[in-house]
Amino acid sequence: MTEHHVLGLSGGKDSAALAVYMRQHHPELDIDYFFTDTGKELPEVYEFLGRLEGFLGKPILRLNPDRDFDFWLRQYGNFLPSPNTRWCTRKLKLEPFKQWIRPWLTAKDKVISYVAIRADEDHREGMVTQDSHLTVRLPFREAGVDKIGVLEILEASGLGLPKYYDWRSRSGCTFCFFQQKIEWVRLKRTHPEEFEAAKTYEKTALEHGSPFTWTQRESLGELEQPVRMAQIEADFTLRRERELANRRPNPLRTVDQEPVDIDDLYLEDEGGGACLICHK
């Protein structure tokens, strides 16, 4: 029986660290690395994937080259995706992966998919499959690698974190609806052209009867008002300072202190969360 080993990359830290880990600990495996491109990724994501390719010494396959976010938005009548209607994850991430491996499964080949769920993420599970020829493996959970362990892997490899971690804690689309409001503010400051594009999508969607804006109970036009942006930034600074004050550094770890991800400061009414396949 032919075996195929595959590892999906989101452009985020966990999946990148898993790729490094598998190359270092299982060099005997010929792993196909893939990235499902929505066509709306941050430029920092593409830059990081390029550096990762250099480390791995092999290309990262790009899936989904023809039907990007704009194509599927038209198919859905300009209705924006939302946490409760995540057609973007299904059409731009899950289905391209299933189509890619379908010939192998049809041929009764064995497919092993490696997913970057950490040991400290008990609440998360990998993709549930009904096909006996597809196996999902969680190497970090099996090896006890947690968030600090991921950071240590990336630091030791010389890759470090993707540059967008300077201002945002997620990979994926520039206008991901799971972003918290501080991430929208920082998107406007860091990539104003992408913020304007997101506003255009929102306006077009509303004109077509979509009930959703990108962020809960607030349009981007309202969010970008200077007083509102200042309020969001001040509130986030206070939450971050409280979180840092409550943390205790571990002297036994090589990483001095775990950085505060924006998702660590999640507020229920400010977005937050993630699609597993996009965010890891």
Results as ranks from 00 to 15, higher is better:
21 Y>A: 02
21 Y>E: 03
22 M>W: 01
22 M>F: 01
22 M>D: 00
22 M>H: 00
22 M>I: 05
23 R>C: 02
23 R>D: 00
23 R>K: 15
24 Q>A: 11
25 H>N: 12
26 H>M: 08
26 H>V: 07
27 P>R: 13
27 P>A: 11
28 E>Q: 15
28 E>A: 14
29 L>H: 03
32 D>N: 05
33 Y>M: 05
33 Y>F: 15
33 Y>P: 00
33 Y>K: 01
34 F>S: 00
35 F>W: 11
35 F>R: 00
36 T>K: 00
37 D>R: 13
37 D>I: 11
38 T>C: 10
39 G>Q: 06
40 K>L: 12
41 E>C: 14
42 L>H: 02
42 L>V: 00
45 V>R: 12
46 Y>Q: 10
47 E>T: 02
47 E>W: 07
47 E>Q: 09
48 F>N: 03
48 F>C: 02
49 L>N: 11
50 G>T: 09
50 G>D: 09
52 L>I: 15
52 L>W: 12
53 E>L: 08
54 G>D: 13
55 F>N: 02
55 F>K: 02
57 G>A: 09
58 K>T: 14
58 K>Q: 15
59 P>A: 03
59 P>S: 09
59 P>G: 06
61 L>C: 01
62 R>Y: 13
62 R>L: 11
63 L>F: 06
63 L>H: 04
63 L>G: 02
63 L>E: 03
64 N>C: 06
64 N>I: 01
64 N>R: 05
